[in-house]
C-alpha cells in the first residue's frame, strides 16, 4: 500500500511466522508491477486513510488498487486480511465490480479520534477473546450472511469472513496478539500445498 500502517503489520507477520515456525517472505507493494513481480500467496491491506489510499492507489503512476482488486477476484482461494481502511476497501472497492467482502460498511462511524477505543472482543474464528483497538474505525452497517461474522464486540459485528477474505474494523496489528496474522499465514500454506 502507498500509505498506511505497513510496519506494524510486517512486525506482526514476522512474529506470527515465528510462532508457527514457518519462513515467510514479505513484499511491500506500491505499484501494480510490484504485485506482478512478487506473486504473493496472501495479501494484507493495512489501516491508514482510505481516501488517500484510493486516490494514490488509482493514480496512473501506481495503478496498485485496480491490480489488487483484480488479483483478489482472480485468486479466490488466497487469503486476504483487510484492517480498518483495508476493510473499507474490501467491502466497498468502488471500481464498478462486486464487493470483495459482502457487507455494507460506514467510514469513520464511531466519531473522531477522541472516540477511538479499545475493548475486549469475541472471535469465533480464533475460538477465543481478542484485544480490539478501534481508531477512527469504520462500522458494518449490514452483513447479509450472519454466518460470516467471525468477530463480535458485545452484540455488534466487527469482523466478517467472506470465503477467504477477512475484513476487520479494528487493528489486530497493534494489539501484540498475532492470532489473525497466524490465521492468514496458515490459510496461505493450505492453499499452496
Amino acid at each position: 500500500m502507498l500509505q498506511g500502517a505497513r510496519h506494524v503489520h510486517i512486525e506482526a507477520l514476522n512474529k506470527a511466522a515465528e510462532a508457527l515456525n514457518l519462513e515467510i517472505e514479505i513484499h511491500e507493494l506500491r505499484k501494480s508491477s510490484d504485485l506482478y513481480s512478487s506473486s504473493p500467496h496472501a495479501l494484507v491491506i493495512p489501516g491508514g486513510e482510505s481516501t488517500t489510499m484510493r486516490l494514490t492507489g488509482n493514480d496512473p503512476t501506481s495503478q496498485l488498487l485496480p491490480a489488487l482488486f483484480k488479483w483478489i477476484r482472480n485468486n479466490p482461494e488466497n487469503p486476504v486480511l483487510g484492517t480498518c481502511a483495508g476493510a473499507i476497501l474490501l467491502c466497498d472497492p468502488q471500481d464498478g465490480g462486486e464487493s470483495l467482502v459482502s457487507a455494507k460498511i460506514d467510514r469513520n462511524a464511531y466519531g473522531r479520534q477522541v472516540d477511538s477505543f479499545q475493548a475486549q472482543l469475541q472471535s469465533s474464528l480464533l475460538g477465543r477473546n481478542f484485544s480490539g483497538i478501534f481508531i477512527r474505525a469504520p462500522r458494518f452497517v449490514s452483513v447479509p450472511n450472519f454466518n460470516q461474522v467471525v468477530v463480535m464486540h458485545s452484540d455488534e459485528a466487527v469482523g466478517v469472513l467472506d470465503s477467504n477474505r477477512l475484513a476487520l474494523t479494528f487493528h489486530p496489528e497493534l494489539s501484540g496478539d498475532t492470532g489473525f496474522h497466524e490465521w492468514l499465514i496458515q490459510r496461505a500454506m493450505e492453499v499452496n500445498e
Partner: peptide, 15 residues
C-alpha cells in the same frame, strides 16, 4: 490510552 494515541499516529505513516 497511549496505544490509541500512538496508534492514530501510525495510521498517518507514509503520508
Amino acid at each position: 490510552t497511549e496505544l490509541l494515541k500512538r496508534g492514530f499516529a501510525k495510521m498517518q505513516e507514509g503520508g
